[in-house]
Design a protein around this nucleic acid. Structure first.
Lengths: 242, 242
DNA sequence: CGGAGGGTTGATTCCCCTCAAAATCAGTGG
DNA sequence: CCACTGATTTTGAGGGGAATCAACCCTCCG
């Protein structure tokens, strides 16, 4: 599902004209209670959870076009923080406004639910990454996933993409040490699979890389939420119950 | 949120009078396209994904009272299989019927969304398990989570619970080898934290165990989805768009 | 009785972590 | 222009946690 220009402009006109956050700053703090949503217009960010002992697990990187804070809106998720990787520009959407918009444009709501669904599928895939794949496969798989997501917004193709992530960030995302991330990237480079250098990821052999990482892209390719008449009628009735 | 007896009986009366599946049999095959949902009335099951190389990652165990196949209904998730651990008895809910019920009982739909939300939070926590915790912490955390879930349906307390899982299944769930699961369980037992034996988990020192595993139970304790008037109106309008 | 599934333990291997130290690079200010 | 600083990348050495391989035990069951 791709939103029309009209629909995107609805969202953009609605929010504050574009809030800017500098690199390294938190957009949302873990534990923050006022719920807001954002559309990431430019730059990269990531959502994370802090453990009691100070370790950090990055749940997902966010790239331009992504919705941030979905879980906070649709569901009562355990909370997490969001931090800017680069300078970013976001459109801030207050929930009330957003919900109002949904009532006017069901397609927009479908888009958001679709995004939430994809986020969920990605978390599952990351679970498999850290649970069942070697460090090298894991890194390859992760970077291919990022590439495909960026491809959808025209920021990547099968030859590679610009990537502002540090090896420390990648380490926190895939559950490795930064040192080992470096070794793994070298191995991938020396095997002619992919090159991570100077802020760019280059796929040196996409086909072979795909085989090596067991990358099955179908989990990113959903056709949209599945709703039917009676379900929607039920949702309507929630007005009295919610 | 706890469903009333009336509401549970609505669900139970609706489905086939209780389908039985023997231990070890698949309830849902990975790749199966006809979408159905189930309520697990008795016995244990688990959802899993198979990798191309034959490895298996268990996404979650399901205990009595759980909804199965939620992701298939609400969202277009990447598909996964569901297998029975013990003999199980399920109530099969066809989506159409289920959606019809939702329109009559908004509370039921809230319950289902709440369950989906909790599933999501658990997957995130499992991601942290395998990414950031040692084998021993991971196992302790996982068994405490299971205990708390079972407590909600009266099948566990702070002293322990009956657990039909084999060490092989635990291994596939937490991303360890079966051999190492055994060693880890021995370590927990010798340290006086918990005992896994004869199909039972006994918490020998719940407080100390909780500290050791960094177990923060708030992620399991949601108050229900967060909806408002305008949002629900929007959902109603989806009738024309879905 | 024999076989299968599950549990337990030991020996060995290896993947990845930790610690440590260069090398490179981007700013920053004198 | 250059010294200084901090962040990042790179590489090496050593250690440890978990996998693998390989037994052996037990119980259950046809």
């Amino acid at each position: 599902m791709v939103l029309s220009e009209d629909e995107l402009s609805i969202l953009k006109n609605l929010g504050k004209a574009g809030r800017r956050i500098p690199a390294g700053r938190d957009l949302v703090y873990q534990g923050q209670s006022d719920k807001v949503a954002y559309i990431l217009n430019s730059g990269w960010a990531f959502s994370y959870k802090l453990l009691q002992d100070g370790q950090r697990q990055i749940l997902d990187f966010e790239v331009p076009g992504d919705f941030l804070g979905l879980r906070s809106i649709l569901l009562n998720m355990s909370d997490h923080g969001i931090e800017a990787v680069t300078d970013i520009e976001v459109t801030e959407l207050h929930i009330d406004e957003l919900l109002e918009i949904f009532s006017q444009s069901p397609r927009l709501m479908l888009a958001v639910l679709w995004a939430a669904s994809r986020d969920d599928a990605m978390i599952v895939e990351h679970l498999i990454d850290v649970g069942r794949r070697s460090a090298t496969e894991r890194m390859a798989h992760y970077l291919m996933e990022l590439g495909l997501r960026l491809e959808l917004v025209g920021m990547a193709d099968r030859s590679g993409f610009a990537c502002p992530l540090t090896q420390y960030l990648l380490a926190d995302a895939v559950g490795l040490s930064a040192v080992h991330v470096n070794r793994v990237l070298r191995e991938l480079r020396e095997n002619g699979l992919l090159t991570f250098r100077d802020g760019c990821v280059r796929f040196d052999d996409y086909v072979e890389l795909s085989r090596f990482a067991q990358f099955d892209e179908t989990y990113l390719d959903h056709s949209g939420p599945r709703f039917r008449q009676s379900f929607l009628a039920g949702l309507g009735n929630l007005r009295e119950a919610g």
